[in-house]
Design a binder for these strands. Sequence first.
DNA 1: TTGTAAGCGTTATCAC
DNA 2: GTGATAACGCTTACAA
Lengths: 339, 339
Amino acid sequence: MEKLTIDKIAKLALVSRSVVSRVLNNHPNVSEEARERVLKVVEKYNYSPNPVARSLATQHTRQIGVLTSRFKDENLDNGYWSQLYLGVFEECIRRGYYVRLSFYDSSMNDNLRRHLLNEHQLDGLICLNEEVTDLAAEHFAHKERSVVIVGHNPRYTTISSVDVDNQAGAHKGVSHLTGLGHRVIGGIFGNHNVQETEQRISGYKKALRQAGIEFDERLVHVGSYSQEEGYQMVNEWLASVPEMTALFCAGDTIAMGALLALKENNISVPERFSVMGFDGLPISKYLIPPLTTVAQPIYGKGEKAAALLIDQLQKKETRTLHIDLSPELIIRNTTAPAP
Amino acid sequence: MEKLTIDKIAKLALVSRSVVSRVLNNHPNVSEEARERVLKVVEKYNYSPNPVARSLATQHTRQIGVLTSRFKDENLDNGYWSQLYLGVFEECIRRGYYVRLSFYDSSMNDNLRRHLLNEHQLDGLICLNEEVTDLAAEHFAHKERSVVIVGHNPRYTTISSVDVDNQAGAHKGVSHLTGLGHRVIGGIFGNHNVQETEQRISGYKKALRQAGIEFDERLVHVGSYSQEEGYQMVNEWLASVPEMTALFCAGDTIAMGALLALKENNISVPERFSVMGFDGLPISKYLIPPLTTVAQPIYGKGEKAAALLIDQLQKKETRTLHIDLSPELIIRNTTAPAP
DNA sequence: TTGTAAGCGTTATCAC
DNA sequence: GTGATAACGCTTACAA
């Protein structure tokens, strides 16, 4: 099986190289008989054009880069990235694009850094967190239209983005808790200085307000999305705020840590204490007890981000869009009426 | 900032295009002064050669494909995949290769299928499961040297592979259980007809034999790596084999389901029943109770697979290698002496 | 409708 | 040590 090129196919189909090209690219101006001859040869030899050569000629690669940080958080471990990436990937494939997934690590040298977002090889970029967004914004400054970020970022209003409606999500979760009669509800949130966190806190406050509960600063902690965080805070609060009966965790992983601490302190969930998660990770269903949580459309975020980017690349969309997706409350077994 | 090409750099450095190319590729036969002039211009304009053009000329892309199935198992959800991919990615980046991660879905049409492993765009391929190995073997039949698989597959002895030593792993886990005095030990294993499963069962049997325990077929179940599987089997065995006091799960996810079922049946772990996992997923530490498990070097498998592949691509290794990595027992809180 | 020829940005061969 | 020049395999004016 020797190497096939467009010229060989052309020869075999008794036409010129350009006719083959037109057929392959569905261009007009090619007679029906020529088209059929070409198609038959293509079929017979199972030919497919060399995408590298095509890229060089067309100046685009149909490849999209997905960029995220190496160390930034533990999402890597919990299935969040997988879901998100899967959404990106499948939307891209459907529309004829490839995806290159890279992890950025701040210890990388300039050379590597440049490689990761080499514009020669990438038609566009999807940034999955703030750190890499900064990186990309620097390099792609002149052509912002080919970048999309997951998670709104007030510093980049001209870059399209996708996120779950964080405020609505937190509001849903906390409202469920207040609806069950809880009055002293702790809140553990993720990263500082991020719109996501602000929005979730805002939703938390709104739900309290609507239930006529006064906001108490001591009941809110902002740290990280790690299990450790939930574990630590529960231990702290159990000592300092014994009247607490429920906890809103801005991430399922936080909730996992919280559940572990509760268990170790012999506090039964949900009888004596309710726990609400956020994310709706696949594993949340198998926690003990199965976790009540606010599910965000993780796959959908990836899918939508890819759609947005490709629409821009194909000039189907020229505006900067900031899309909010809807969260959904999943009631399982970690929440119950206040004791 | 206009587009830079090698010709522009050449002009600015007062040399020919070939000299620039030589400098950039560390070829000999270029004078020190010329080299410096070129380097200075390259630095100043922050030039980096177009990899697409380079690929067309050199006939290789420095891109490696990673292929796995979309639906085959739940690894996607539990952090296994992320770890594995991270290992592949970082080894590749270190050695100057890019990675394209794709999910194969059997519902894909021929066109897409061919796309996924288009040899024009990929120097090599890493297959993460059997289904995609079959796929790759078909297409890359003539150049097996550029494929590496994760998980040994007796059907492809001429393709290099990496795996954990499955037999040793299971043996370590079950020996720990027998060492604690357990005599009736259930075993739940993953996919049928896979060397991995055979090896783990073999390790399980060996440990029993060494402890003088007779093998009982009814205590072994082969199904899938899902939580569901663990959940179901525990419920079954609790009824049919009440004398069972310990369980060896060939995957941490299976163990998660088992723990949930045990909890629902009010059987305390590890006091009345011990559970051993396999994998050492990051989340296993946060299960309730934290899971005792046989950790396999997931990241290491990815890393080694990439290393093997690149060694082959660079002709540093011409043999077919089947590498076994060592598992490690992590004792946490789900195992205790038999009651 | 078809074919010719000029790119696309590199590497690599081969005179000089 | 250096610089033309011919690949690499495709797209796309433009001419026929």
